[in-house]
Amino acid sequence: MAQPAIPSPWESLHRTRRALLATTLALGLWLLGLSLIGICVVFIIPHRTWNAADICGVLALIGFVISHSLVGWKMIQLIKAAGKPGMETDPKDTATAFTAFWKTNLRAHAILWVWIVLLIAITYLD
């Protein structure tokens, strides 16, 4: 059986839109849930004396929400650049949005990994 032809790069990106949209929605729900948890922990639930790990945890949560909101924003820009069905798109815009999304995504994950390592270190070395 013959292999199906690989579509053009921008057509492939256009076909990725649905998965990117699903991921953006899931990310939005994650961020909403985490923000609510953060608000509950900081303002609603009575808390014992704050230690370094607690403060680090709250800062990590804020960092995660802000950096991943930026990822979500870049993802929306990429979805827009990939175009609606039949809509004309500029490959230059699509390529720029693609690169911008991946750079922001890496930075956001780097912040997340640094915070996770810090949190584990503080929790276990305290």
């Binding site: 053009s8 790069p9 256009h14 990939a82 809509m87 798109t89 500029d90 390529a95 720029t96 690169t99």
Partner: peptide
């Protein structure tokens, strides 16, 4: 301006921009 329908050639400038994500 080009469309998102399959094309035979990729503009080297677009490819260079996409390479930034590597």
């Amino acid at each position: 301006m080009s469309t998102n329908t399959p094309s035979l050639q990729t503009d080297p400038e677009d490819a260079a921009i996409a390479h930034g994500a590597r």
